[in-house]
């Protein structure tokens, strides 16, 4: 649906199916937690008893039962954002829009809010659209990512694909926030062995593949640079390795690694 072409009243109605949370929470400072969460329900003209029931449900979902009658000024940042999330979910939206929702929070609170969002996504089956400049947030909970530069989407795909093989320069820039920004090409001139870049994803991350591949040969290896981590629930690794030995044997080793499903490429 083209939202920008709707009339005011149509848009008002359509907006109730989109929950939104904000960087600065944007709660009514003069209303209690309970009244803040009830606000969208009252706008939707829900009967009073139903409002109370729904608010209690939401308070429980975000873990704020104890704070129902407090005012926003009495809450911490994380608690305020929980109120924001409860308020956004009140009308059972199809999509939850998070506009830099964790950018004003400290790292621990960010993680708590992210796991709440992930929980909501999985339990309630609500699509979450998250706008952020924090790469670790994307890595922690997102499935797909789109990179926007100057208002245009320049790259889009599964988080794993985009993060491991960024195409656009702005994506590379962003991804280097969480990856090691060190450029392995600087090593080429100083090392005598063959420099190989290896990428892998999935359960093979935790298998002793390198050791198995070289053990029947005389090839030795050194890990020069690398990341082994997880994106959401998928383990992955990116390594730059120097192989020392004769070329033929190294080729055999590389062929074996490729056969196991690793992505292998010469750096030179």
């Amino acid at each position: 649906m083209e939202l920008t072409k709707l009339s005011t009243t149509q848009l008002q109605k359509e907006r109730r199916r989109i929950g939104m949370i904000f960087q600065h929470f944007n709660l009514l400072s003069m209303a209690t937690v309970r009244d803040n969460i009830a606000f969208p329900l009252e706008l939707a003209k829900m009967p009073k008893t139903a409002v109370k029931e729904r608010v209690d449900e939401l308070l429980k979902l975000v873990g704020l039962e104890q704070h129902a009658d407090k005012y926003p000024a009495q809450l911490s940042g994380g608690q305020k954002q929980r109120v924001g999330i409860a308020r956004a979910l009140a009308n059972n939206p199809d999509v939850l829009l998070c506009d830099e929702a964790t950018s004003a929070l400290d790292p621990q609170t960010t993680n708590a809010i992210l796991s709440l969002l992930l929980d909501i996504n999985q339990k309630l089956g609500i699509t979450i659209l998250l706008i952020t400049h924090e790469m670790h947030v994307i890595r922690a909970i997102c499935d797909r990512v789109a990179v926007i530069d100057g208002g245009d989407i320049v790259e889009m795909g599964d988080v794993l694909d985009v993060f491991l093989k960024p195409q656009h320069s702005i994506t590379k820039d962003f991804v280097s926030q969480i990856a090691d920004s060190f450029d392995p090409r600087e090593l080429i001139d100083t090392r005598s062995g063959r420099l190989i870049k290896i990428n892998y994803v999935g359960e093979i991350t935790y298998e002793p593949l390198l050791f198995n591949a070289v053990k029947s040969t005389s090839v030795q290896f050194t890990i020069l640079q690398g990341t082994v981590s997880r994106m959401k629930n998928t383990p992955y690794g990116q390594l730059v390795i120097e192989f020392i030995g004769n070329d033929q044997e190294i080729d055999t080793v590389l062929a074996e690694l490729r056969a196991k499903g690793l992505e292998v490429g010469d750096l030179k």
Partner: peptide, 21 residues
């Protein structure tokens, strides 16, 4: 706070709702 008005709009509040509530 402009943000609160923005939030109310995002929740589908009419102008009258925004003034009153």
């Amino acid at each position: 706070d402009k943000g609160v008005i923005e939030a109310a709009q995002a929740m589908g509040a009419s102008r009258w709702d925004i003034v009153r509530r």
